[in-house]
């Protein structure tokens, strides 16, 4: 299936989803006024990916900022991943910058809701 490659903007993240490598990446900032529009194609892609998934899937989330309009959409991405988790072994790597407790807590909040292993990865600089 076709990959998703979206360049980041000041309000939306860089997205690289590849079914060939089984690596899904969302990076940068996610502060659009309306996040639903941006995230829907990503959620749909994951649904289709489930039918031809690699045996292992690595999800890298590396966000500097996200607004509450994005919060529920990011949860939707994780829930969709949860729904295909039987067909592929998924790991979610949640990156946060050193000392950014708000971003660490945000990752822990998703971890508490989603039944997929999360790795919290502290980075010196993103």
């Amino acid at each position: 299936m076709d990959p998703i490659n979206i360049e980041g903007t000041p309000k939306t993240p860089t997205v690289n989803f590849s079914s060939d490598s089984g690596v899904l990446e969302i990076k940068g900032r996610s502060i659009p006024e309306n996040a639903v529009e941006f995230y829907k194609p990503l959620v749909d892609w994951i649904g289709s990916y489930g039918d031809s998934a690699q045996s292992n899937t690595e999800v890298n989330i590396q966000l500097e900022y996200f607004n509450t309009s994005s919060s529920k959409c990011i949860l939707d991405v994780f829930k969709k991943l949860e729904s295909v988790n039987g067909k592929t072994n998924i790991t979610i790597n949640w990156h946060y910058e050193e000392d950014d407790e708000d971003m660490l807590e945000a990752g822990e909040d998703y971890q508490a809701i989603i039944n997929i292993p999360f790795k919290m990865i502290e980075m010196e600089e993103m």
Partner: peptide
């Protein structure tokens, strides 16, 4: 976050 309700712009009261 997990109540499944969305406002028009997505945030749903967060």
């Amino acid at each position: 976050l997990d109540n499944g309700q969305y406002s028009v712009h997505g945030g749903g009261g967060l």
